[in-house]
Structures are given as structure tokens and as C-alpha cells.
């Protein structure tokens, strides 16, 4: 990248390092940091929406809907999450392809399960075999986001379900005695008040979500873990201008530090948000704040 990088072999250590860390491939690892941030930015609201749907359907008086919500929340308990990640990526992919298959090739007579293969007609493939590379990458990323949203939606549903039950019940009864319908009570009384109760759980979930991002690697996205393994491996002078030994340890140390910093910053920010929200609340933390002031 720099002008003095023409002949890396002749450079001294510091300049060599500066050139090494700005090669095209290193730019890829820096952009993959943004992939992680993008994933967080998309997943967090989606998972929250899924969680909200799950929690409100678990509260529903219509039995099948309530069973569905409760099952959605309960099914994540007792099974390792990583299994969900591995499962959903294949399952969702096959589901989409099967739906497109049914729509686009109605006169296809063969079974889609042929022995050990999953076969759909060519125009139903997702993405199409002849589409460019970036479409494949984006599709893989979207599948990953959806998987994250489904799994974390269940966690969020659990937190929100708990928060909805933590809202003082006499508030709801008061609203009903004013003649509000169930829908009005839900939207005007319950939902605005539940967030204070949900915030500790949700901020915990955010921390967990940060720590789950390296699992993107397992879903086949070229994320920071992928690039750290790729770039850290020993390189000989035949294939690169920057030969070095096995540096994967240092790359993963850098990732470790990155995640620790990210967690620390989130902790500080969420602490501030919590302090803002508890201000003036009739809770223990709110009382403590009032006394301190």
C-alpha cells in the first residue's frame, strides 16, 4: 500500500510490518470485522422482533399459538446452540430450494430425496448456478443472519416473556377496569413498561450475541476466524513477498483482544443506558440513585 513497499525483502522490521499489515489480504480481514459488525447490526433488531413475536404468542389465549410460542422458547433449552446453527443453515437452505422447486417445476415427478442426495430442478437452485460470486456470498450471509435471528429470537422471547410477567399486575387490572380491551392493555400499558425489566436480560443477550459471532465461521461465511487462519499460516517465499512462520497464534491473540475490548466497551455503554433508564424508577437501583444525589 505504501510507496516504499516495492521490495519487502530489503525493508527493516518496522517498515516491513507496516507493509505486511496493509496487503490486499489484510484489507480483507479488516473488512470482515465490518461483516461481524454488520451481522450484529442486522441480527439484534431481527432477533428482538422474533423474540417479541415469540413472547406475545406464548402469552396468547389462543391455545395452539401459545403452544407454538412456548415450544419455540423451550426448544432451545437442553440442546447445544451450535447444533442449531449447523442444523438451520442446511435446513433453511433446503426449505427455500424446496419451495422454489414446488413453485417453478410443478411437473417434476422424481423425489427430491434421491438416495443420499438432495436434488431440485436447476432453475430452483438458490442461488442460481450461474450467478456471480457475490450473490453466493450474500446468500450465505443472509442464511447466517436468519439462523442467528431464529436462535437468538428464542433467547429474547424468553427474556421478554419474563419481563411481561414482571410488569405489576395491578397496572393491567387498572387498565382493564378503565374499560380497555385486551389489545389496548397490551399495547398501551404492558409494552411501554416492560423494557425496564427486560433490559438486564437483553444486555446480557447482547454480550452473548457478540461472543457468538465467531460461529459465523462454521456457517461458511469468510469471517475474521477464517481470515485469521488463512493469513496466520506459514508462508514460504515462493508464494508471497512476505514470508513468515506459523503466526496463527498471534492472529488469534489479536482476535481475543478484539473481543475483550468489544465486550468491555459494550459493558460501559450498557451500564450508562441502565443508569438512564432506572433514573426515577421505583426500584432498588432507582432508590439508590436518589439517595446518592
Amino acid at each position: 500500500m505504501f510507496s516504499f513497499c516495492v521490495d519487502p525483502a530489503s525493508l527493516d522490521d518496522l517498515a516491513w510490518m507496516a507493509c505486511y499489515l496493509t496487503t490486499g489480504k489484510h484489507m480483507a480481514i479488516y473488512t470482515s470485522v465490518f461483516t461481524v459488525l454488520l451481522l450484529l447490526a442486522i441480527t439484534a433488531p431481527t432477533a428482538l422482533a422474533f423474540g417479541f413475536l415469540g413472547a406475545s404468542s406464548a402469552r396468547s389465549h389462543f391455545a395452539p399459538l401459545s403452544w407454538f410460542g412456548k415450544a419455540y422458547i423451550a426448544v432451545v433449552r437442553g440442546v447445544p446452540d451450535i447444533a442449531f446453527f449447523l442444523f438451520f443453515v442446511i435446513a433453511l437452505d433446503q426449505l427455500f430450494e424446496w419451495i422454489r422447486h414446488e413453485v417453478k417445476c410443478p411437473d417434476w415427478t422424481d423425489s427430491i430425496w434421491q438416495g443420499n442426495d438432495f436434488v431440485v430442478c436447476d432453475i430452483a437452485k438458490l442461488p442460481l448456478g450461474n450467478s456471480p460470486q457475490w450473490v453466493h456470498e450474500t446468500y450465505g450471509f443472509m442464511l447466517a443472519v436468519l439462523t442467528f435471528a431464529i436462535v437468538f429470537g428464542a433467547f429474547a422471547a424468553n427474556v421478554l416473556y419474563g419481563a411481561m410477567r414482571a410488569v405489576p399486575h395491578n397496572q393491567l387490572e387498572t387498565a382493564e377496569s378503565y374499560g380497555m380491551t385486551r389489545r389496548q392493555v397490551f399495547w398501551r400499558i404492558l409494552v411501554p413498561q416492560m423494557w425496564v425489566f427486560a433490559l438486564p436480560g437483553l444486555s446480557n443477550l447482547w454480550m452473548v450475541l457478540i461472543k457468538a459471532t465467531p460461529l459465523l465461521f462454521l456457517l461458511g461465511v469468510e469471517d475474521i476466524v477464517y481470515w485469521a487462519r488463512e493469513l496466520g499460516g506459514a508462508k514460504t517465499a515462493r508464494f508471497t513477498d512476505y514470508p513468515h512462520g506459523d503466526w496463527r497464534m498471534w492472529y488469534f491473540l489479536a482476535l481475543l483482544v478484539f473481543y475483550l475490548l468489544f465486550t468491555r466497551i459494550s459493558e460501559i455503554v450498557l451500564d450508562k443506558v441502565m443508569r438512564k433508564l432506572t433514573h426515577g424508577q421505583a426500584t432498588l437501583a432507582g432508590d439508590a440513585q436518589r439517595k446518592a444525589a
Binding site: I210, K211, A212, T213, P214, L215, F217, V225, A228, R229, G232, D246, R248, M249, F252, L253, L255, L256, Y259, L260, T263, R264
Partner: peptide, 16 residues
């Protein structure tokens, strides 16, 4: 504060 996944990777390459 750090993902277990990264800890595993780091430890493996450290031992290596």
C-alpha cells in the same frame, strides 16, 4: 469476556 471458540483456537495454536 471472550468467545470460547476463539479461546480454543488460540490455545491450540499456542500449544502448536
Amino acid at each position: 469476556g471472550s468467545p470460547l471458540f476463539i479461546q480454543f483456537f488460540f490455545a491450540y495454536f499456542l500449544f502448536l
